[in-house]
């Protein structure tokens, strides 16, 4: 039988550092999936995941076991991703002007019939990535957690460390920001 998280954490705290490897193996797929929502390049994703686990190891003594270890770790992952977004705010590569042909095609088909463009989800995903890259770090985080991951405001508050009213305010601003970006996007393409 596999040891529980609590047992592993207790062992690490007692000095058996190698037990931490089991915790990494257990949770790294989830942390990788989270990091890939915010970073595009694989080396950036790996750096984020590595930072999350190093922070978790260093702060393991502050883990109170009031909530599952996974929740504590995911909170750390989300905050690390937010720090990553803030530190990379200035070198966003994508612009709204250099859309690829499939992206333009997807938008044109949407303009012709908003109900009928279920095809080419790759183009839609590329468009989402382009739009998200234009958002501020706060807005991107909120939109990802709220709209894409379908999390509640309370959950977002717990994950980010922001208060519930602050999450609501940031969600409102994020939606407005996104609308503005979509307006620019569609105006530039004369749709």
């Amino acid at each position: 039988m596999e040891p529980s998280d609590t047992e592993l954490i207790a062992a690490v705290r007692k000095g058996d550092v190698q037990q931490f490897e089991t915790l990494i193996t257990r949770y790294q797929p989830r942390v990788f999936a989270t990091a890939r929502r915010y970073a595009r390049r694989e080396d950036e994703v790996q750096d984020i995941v590595q930072e999350v686990f190093i922070k978790a190891f260093q702060k393991l003594d502050s883990f109170r076991a009031e909530a599952p270890f996974e929740h504590w770790l995911m909170r750390m992952a989300v905050r690390t991703c937010y720090d990553f977004l803030r530190s990379h705010q200035r070198n966003r590569e994508t612009t709204l002007t250099d859309l690829s042909d499939p992206e333009v095609d997807w938008l044109e088909r949407f303009a012709a019939g908003p109900e009928d463009n279920s095809k080419n989800t790759d183009a839609a995903r590329a468009l989402v990535e382009r739009v998200m890259a234009q958002l501020s770090p706060e807005a991107r985080l909120v939109i990802t957690l709220l709209e894409i991951e379908d999390r509640s405001v309370k959950e977002i508050a717990r994950l980010t460390g922001w208060s519930v009213p602050l999450v609501k305010v940031r969600a409102f601003r994020a939606r407005a920001q996104m609308k503005k970006i979509l307006e620019t996007l569609t105006r530039e393409k004369y749709l």
């Binding site: 995903r125 709209e147 996104m178």
Partner: peptide, 9 residues
Amino acid sequence: LQQKLMAAA
């Protein structure tokens, strides 16, 4: 459009 993009994501 926003809904469609979010659904794709």
